[in-house]
């Protein structure tokens, strides 16, 4: 066990955990931010995507100690009420079905749009490697483009 300082959604946290515990479990089970999901545990599906600074990372495969003292953003940190432009686009396009992957999809999309405000289909395919088993991919693409227009 070790005491680790984290900054999540601009708030400071001190957690007393196994330093090897994946960031995902600290976010979900210690801090209680459950918007970020577990899907595979090996950084394949992207359900656990959060930001470290502005980069989208897969929190299931990052030991919490390596995220110490960095700025972490989760889906809850985008906005409390769904007013972030990407969340608004998602709602407008009515993207979610079961919804389980969508927090991760949105976080990946936000990071993509920060780097590339007008992504082509190819750029979306390349950056958006998250899995959606319900098959909402086409609507996600539409929502990313809508958010890009609105930005």
């Amino acid at each position: 066990m070790a005491t680790i300082q984290l900054t999540v959604n601009r708030k400071a946290y001190e957690v007393d955990v196994d330093p090897q515990m994946p960031l995902l479990w600290v976010l979900r089970d210690v801090i209680g931010l459950t918007g970020t999901k577990f899907g595979c545990g090996i950084a394949q599906c992207g359900a656990c995507t959060v930001h470290i600074d502005d980069a989208a990372v897969r929190s299931c495969a990052i030991p919490v100690e390596s995220a110490a003292n960095q700025s972490i953003t989760t889906i809850e940190g985008l906005s409390a009420d769904g007013s972030h432009p990407v969340q608004r686009a998602w709602e407008q396009i009515d993207v979610p079905q079961c919804g389980y992957c969508q927090a991760g999809q949105i976080m990946t999309a936000v990071a993509l749009l920060k780097k590339n405000p007008n992504p082509t289909d190819e750029a979306i395919n390349e950056s958006m490697t998250n899995i959606c088993r319900c098959g909402t991919y086409n609507r996600i693409k539409k929502a990313i483009k809508l958010a890009a227009e609105g930005a």
Binding site: T34, G35, K37, I75, D81, Q87, E91, D94, A103
Partner: peptide, 23 residues
């Protein structure tokens, strides 16, 4: 008609609690 998903916002904010989220 194409009524949008009821409680759809909860799925874009991470607010919806799946079983795996509940405590």
């Amino acid at each position: 008609t194409s009524i949008p998903k009821i409680n759809g916002r909860d799925f874009v904010t991470g607010k919806h609690q799946y079983t795996s989220d509940m405590v």
